[in-house]
Design a protein around this nucleic acid. Structure first.
Lengths: 241, 241
DNA sequence: CGAAGGATTGATTAGTCTCAACGCAAGTGG
DNA sequence: CCACTTGCGTTGAGACTAATCAATCCTTCG
């Protein structure tokens, strides 16, 4: 019989194998306080002073930031296992918001429990640091994506990254995966307008690289897609040495 | 007589006051192994597996990433006190490079010494996490800057941020500060072309917002500059409780 | 049936890029 | 010491990417 792995365990195992004791600690910390957020509702708002570290257990969420004039930037996608600001309580106030894209089931971990995790074992400490550094590395790649790639490449890159991350936690089916973002969401994540995203997505479809409909993404030609996106997954640090 | 504060102490004090013991530990860790990098030389290269955590003591450096076709994105500026990947040794390989902008004096801290710092005192642990989270927060703001702001605003924002960060560590003189980036560097940091950066910098000058020459930046009208940049320094988390 | 959210299309404009050249200052070698 | 180079900033003209504005269509849902 297969052992149940919580999404957080699966996620942290990206760093390396954890001991049974560590896994139990994780299960426990993550099981105490579970909440549900409806799709399109904010989980954390800019200005909040969160007293809990949040861990996505199921569903998709996104970080976003808004400029005074209303422009919105989607900063990151949060998939099952992702930790929402390892140390939310170190910063007084959130400088951005987090919003559910689908119905999201997430755990709230108290400061005490989180610090217990942090110091439980050297292996777990490093796994949590690893997770934080991966978040940072992904953020750097997003900066590069928006700064350097053309619209067509940029959207292709987003698709490659999402697929790779979902694959790492076992949430892909063959060459396809869930993809709940609207074209407007993609636009805000890539720094483009919805209209232009629409045209580029159509181009990607027409070129036989992807299918995208009904919130589902198919990679029709993954190799070519990765090539046009100049996607090299090293920055996801998924290798488990 | 004034106590000497290393740039790292100054930086970490952004989180809150540290105890004398903590400060001594920092001084010691940072004093063991000091190196110099010439301007325009790489300090760490993509693909390296660094065995030391590096701390900038003096001078400016930048992180950058290159796409296969040669396009370059500057990801971050590193100023005195900045820690270069708190846990470089957790990731096997660097997915980007770090390059000196000016002559840089930096410390190399061994894994053992760094972990000793990390566990020395709760206050220091939190200060180092704080530093890492600030890095992440700045990276998010850069994503937003490139994704949402127009060229003119984007460059203005870069100027505001640099000035604010330098001010926090006492490296501004009145309304002016050092600014060793070339217009090409600014271009790679903002996702623009050097030619367009040139025109926008001229516009900023013409509008009486800044002066920029001989590697020196003057804010002529800081309030207006911050306004057009939509600069809100919250994301730098400089407030000391 | 009407309303609402999302995707799509077309026409036009604006912002930024590309290419190409030139100016200037500092550094270098004969 | 001068000719040459090199790096950086500046300027102009034209091309092109992506934004804007404005409809239309489709599906879902109350």
């Amino acid at each position: 019989m297969l052992e149940y792995r919580s999404p957080l365990t699966a996620h942290l195992s990206g760093f390396g194998d954890l001991g049974a004791g560590d896994k139990n600690l994780i299960q426990e910390a993550v099981g105490k306080r579970v909440r549900i957020a409806a799709a399109h509702s904010d989980i954390v708002c800019e200005g909040d002073s969160p007293r809990w570290v949040k861990v996505v257990l199921e569903g998709w969420a996104m970080r976003y930031k808004q400029l005074p004039d209303g422009r919105r930037q989607v900063l990151a996608l949060m998939l099952p296992g992702d930790i929402c600001d390892a140390n939310a309580f170190i910063h007084q106030h959130m400088d951005h918001s987090i919003c559910a894209l689908t119905t999201v089931r997430y755990a709230e971990v108290s400061q005490a429990d989180f610090e217990a995790l942090l110091t439980a074992s050297p292996r777990l400490t490093r796994a949590l640091w690893w997770s934080e550094l991966v978040t940072l590395s992904i953020q750097r790649e997003w900066t590069t994506n928006i700064g350097q790639r053309q619209a067509y490449e940029r959207i292709a890159h987003l698709f490659c990254e999402v697929f790779a991350r979902l694959q790492a936690i076992g949430l892909t089916q063959g060459e396809s995966c869930e993809f709940p973002l609207t074209q407007t969401d993609i636009a805000d994540a890539t720094g483009l307008t919805p209209v232009h995203v629409n045209r580029m997505v159509q181009a990607l479809r027409h070129d036989g690289l992807i299918e995208l409909r009904d919130k589902r993404l198919h990679l029709r030609d993954a190799a070519k897609l990765r090539h046009v996106a100049m996607f090299t997954p090293a920055y996801l640090h998924l290798s488990r040495i």
